[in-house]
Amino acid sequence: METIRWLLAAAGVEFEEQYIQSKGDLEKLKQDGFLLFQQVPMVEIDGMKMVQTRAILNYIAGKYNLYGKDLKQRALYCNISKFGAMDLGEMIMALPFKHSDAKEKEKETAVILEKATGRYFPVFEKVLKDHGQDFLVGNQLSRADIQLLETILATEELKADVLSKFPLLKAFKTRISNIPTIKKFLQPGSPRKSPPDEKTVAEAMKVFH
């Protein structure tokens, strides 16, 4: 759900959240037929109950002009966000739920950081260098920029100086973070969520296991 929160916040859309607190809550949603693939998150928007994170993100991006101006830009945006920022972000998101053993978690964290600095971040650095613009696609804010910023901040949670060899990405992070709607989302008290701690992971596993 976090990337959906980011996208709505960047678009300046206020939203309310309802949390699943028990297996009973989840079963009720399933029985009521609201979860097409028996999965959450679910977003109620424009009279629809939408599921599947990628479908939700595509709808929000299209509705609020965060999808690129034309077919070519959308193809670039999809490649950049789906195969780059989203892939790396999903690895980081899954990390707290995969390993209870500290050594195994440390080992996988090292693998993720190696992929970030050796595979993903060099590509984004090159994209910014090659077209010399403020944003990843065209010259306007898109979902790709928002997802990349979210992923950068999540990676910095694992290693604070992870951008030390990527000056254009450092500048990108500062620039996108200062867009008013995003700056507001980064302030304390916003709907943005911190990385899950052990208690949060245990509660989630109890409901969804």
Score class of each variant (00 low, 15 high):
2 E>N: 03
3 T>Q: 00
6 W>C: 03
7 L>A: 04
7 L>W: 00
7 L>V: 03
7 L>H: 04
8 L>G: 02
8 L>S: 00
9 A>R: 04
9 A>F: 04
11 A>E: 02
13 V>K: 02
13 V>M: 00
14 E>M: 05
14 E>D: 02
14 E>K: 11
15 F>H: 02
15 F>I: 01
17 E>M: 07
18 Q>K: 15
18 Q>W: 09
20 I>Y: 01
22 S>L: 14
22 S>V: 02
24 G>N: 10
25 D>Q: 14
27 E>G: 08
27 E>S: 11
28 K>T: 14
31 Q>W: 11
31 Q>L: 01
32 D>Y: 08
32 D>K: 14
33 G>F: 01
36 L>G: 14
36 L>H: 03
36 L>M: 10
37 F>I: 14
37 F>C: 11
38 Q>A: 11
39 Q>W: 00
40 V>P: 09
40 V>R: 10
45 I>E: 09
48 M>Q: 13
50 M>V: 13
50 M>P: 00
52 Q>C: 02
59 Y>R: 05
60 I>T: 04
61 A>H: 15
62 G>P: 07
66 L>W: 07
72 K>P: 03
72 K>A: 15
73 Q>I: 01
78 C>T: 14
79 N>K: 13
79 N>Q: 06
79 N>Y: 02
82 K>S: 03
87 D>T: 03
88 L>W: 04
88 L>I: 00
89 G>E: 07
91 M>I: 01
94 A>Q: 06
94 A>F: 09
99 H>Q: 10
100 S>A: 15
100 S>N: 10
102 A>T: 07
102 A>G: 07
103 K>P: 06
103 K>F: 13
103 K>S: 12
104 E>H: 07
106 E>L: 12
107 K>I: 14
110 A>R: 14
110 A>Y: 06
111 V>I: 14
112 I>N: 05
113 L>W: 05
113 L>Y: 05
113 L>G: 13
114 E>S: 12
114 E>L: 09
115 K>Q: 09
117 T>P: 08
117 T>L: 13
117 T>Q: 13
124 F>N: 10
126 K>D: 10
127 V>G: 09
128 L>G: 15
129 K>G: 02
129 K>T: 10
131 H>C: 01
131 H>L: 01
131 H>G: 05
131 H>W: 04
138 G>R: 09
138 G>H: 02
140 Q>F: 00
140 Q>K: 06
141 L>H: 03
141 L>I: 08
141 L>D: 02
141 L>W: 08
144 A>P: 01
148 L>P: 07
149 L>I: 11
150 E>T: 10
152 I>F: 06
152 I>G: 06
152 I>E: 04
154 A>D: 06
157 E>V: 06
160 A>T: 11
161 D>W: 00
164 S>P: 01
167 P>K: 12
168 L>R: 10
170 K>Y: 03
172 F>T: 11
174 T>V: 06
174 T>K: 13
177 S>W: 04
181 T>P: 03
182 I>E: 04
183 K>T: 08
183 K>H: 14
184 K>Y: 08
184 K>T: 10
186 L>H: 13
187 Q>N: 11
187 Q>K: 08
187 Q>S: 08
188 P>M: 00
189 G>D: 15
193 K>W: 09
193 K>Q: 04
196 P>K: 12
199 K>M: 08
204 A>G: 11
206 K>W: 11
206 K>F: 10
207 V>M: 13
209 H>S: 15
209 H>L: 13
